[in-house]
Design a protein around this nucleic acid. Sequence first.
DNA 1: ACTTTGACTATAA
DNA 2: GTTATAGCCAAAG
Length: 105
Amino acid sequence: MEEKSFYEKVYEVTRQIPKGRVTSYGAIANHLGTGLSARMVGWALNNCHELDPPVPAHRVVNRNGMLSGKFHFPTPTIMQELLEREGIKIKDDCVVDFKKKLWLP
DNA sequence: ACTTTGACTATAA
DNA sequence: GTTATAGCCAAAG
């Protein structure tokens, strides 16, 4: 009986993001079937701070590839640091070649 | 049970 | 091209 709440599914999908890839809130929401409620994805990730294991929320950006949620991290720089470490280049708080690195579940 | 919010997206001006 | 507003769904207060 998997009566998983909406946000639990978000964590599952977000954890499945391969290294060096990123995804958008809309893509996750679409996979969950909510489609239009990308806001819920972000809100689900709002709990990611107490999740176990932690969710690679740094790989989740908005539809523009912009690090909109970076301010929600312990430090707003950790997101860019991690993404660059994965091989993703950040330019002006946006993911370079975002479309090429976009990963769909 | 109702209201408020929330890391978004799309369309309009 | 940029900025503003509306629409969306689900959970917390």
